[in-house]
């Protein structure tokens, strides 16, 4: 896989084609701001949590501007709540659009989930029932967001702990239908696939094999907590072996897709994450050469 390289400016995407792979990136976290600017680490791109920069100014935006001047970035939201039955929050979307105009991300992503109704936010990524009703609800909302932002939305699969009695299709069938109806892209969180597969008893490779290959814009990798009877998506530890194995399978199926390592708690020094990212690079080299 060839990354865009340090110092490269991400070209603006067009709605009609997939963005070229960016290589291997890290989630941008405040604990690493200074180290990034001091050391220019061997990271091809950074993913920023959109909501952390929906502010008027100050130090966070200053750091973002300075890091954006050196690296491509992608915006990753957690509060779009595309699956909620509450109305879309146009003020929030206007903020997302303004931030995108400022930092020119390669793409903008959020999750296939709902985060609250009745004006409240549970600050969690709650799964949807995979029903025709939910599909008819979410698809036009994605189209409206894409129209508002003027770019395709990249939609991520979530980790889930509950399922619903009414679900009539698998999560990957639901995602595939959304891609077909809206032209949205997919952010495949490989760890989330593993976590949900363990929690709901499906085969994780069925998920990966069940989504349209041409729609996958990005991978996520992260750590989880295995409690035996179920698995919690914690983002507080290195990627586990079973997820690396699944990642290799994903690479063989989807090719050199932009890969992002996430860590949100117990954040180690930047160098440790760069080393873990190097493992992703090594796995990709092997997987992609075998696939070729």
């Amino acid at each position: 896989m060839t990354g865009a390289g340090r110092g490269a400016q991400a070209p603006r995407p067009t709605p009609d084609r997939m963005h070229a792979p960016l290589g291997f990136g890290l989630g941008l976290r405040p604990a690493h701001y200074a180290a990034i600017l001091d050391s220019d680490p061997a990271v091809d791109w950074f993913e920023v949590i959109t909501e952390n920069y929906l502010v008027g100014g100050g130090r966070p935006l200053d750091f973002l501007d300075r890091i954006r001047a050196r690296y491509p970035v992608v915006m990753h939201g957690v509060s779009l709540s595309i699956g909620s039955t509450a109305p879309l929050d146009l003020d929030y979307l206007a903020g997302v659009r303004a931030l995108a105009a400022r930092c020119e991300p390669a793409w903008v992503s959020d999750h296939l989930c709902w985060t609250g109704v009745h004006g409240l936010n549970l600050h969690d990524l709650l799964p949807l029932p995979y029903t025709a009703e939910a599909l008819d609800h979410v698809a036009p909302r994605i189209e409206r967001v894409q129209e508002f932002l003027g770019r395709p939305l990249v939609v991520e699969n979530v980790s889930s702990y509950v399922a619903y009695a009414d679900s009539a299709m698998s999560e990957w069938e639901f995602l595939s239908a959304l891609v077909a109806r809206t032209g949205c892209r997919l952010l495949l969180d490989v760890n989330n696939v593993y976590v949900s597969a363990r929690n709901h008893g499906f085969e994780p490779r069925d998920f990966l094999d069940g989504v349209p290959a041409g729609a996958v814009q990005q991978f996520h990798l992260a750590g989880h907590l295995d409690l035996g009877t179920h698995v919690i998506d914690t983002h507080d530890a290195p990627v586990r072996e079973e997820v690396w194995d699944l990642y290799a399978h994903a690479l063989r199926r989807f090719g050199p897709v932009s890969t992002l390592l996430e860590r949100d708690d117990h954040i180690p020094p930047l160098g440790e994450l760069v080393a873990e990212l190097d493992r992703a690079r090594a796995i990709a080299r092997v997987a992609l050469s075998a696939a070729a």
Partner: peptide, 26 residues
């Protein structure tokens, strides 16, 4: 319905009580 499901799940997260009937058995 989706709206009822989300209302029931959110009320449970905020206020507790019996799990919503919409949940699949596990």
């Amino acid at each position: 319905r989706l709206a009822e499901l989300q209302d029931a799940v959110q009320r449970h997260v905020l206020d507790g009580g019996a799990p919503p009937a919409a949940l699949a058995a596990a």
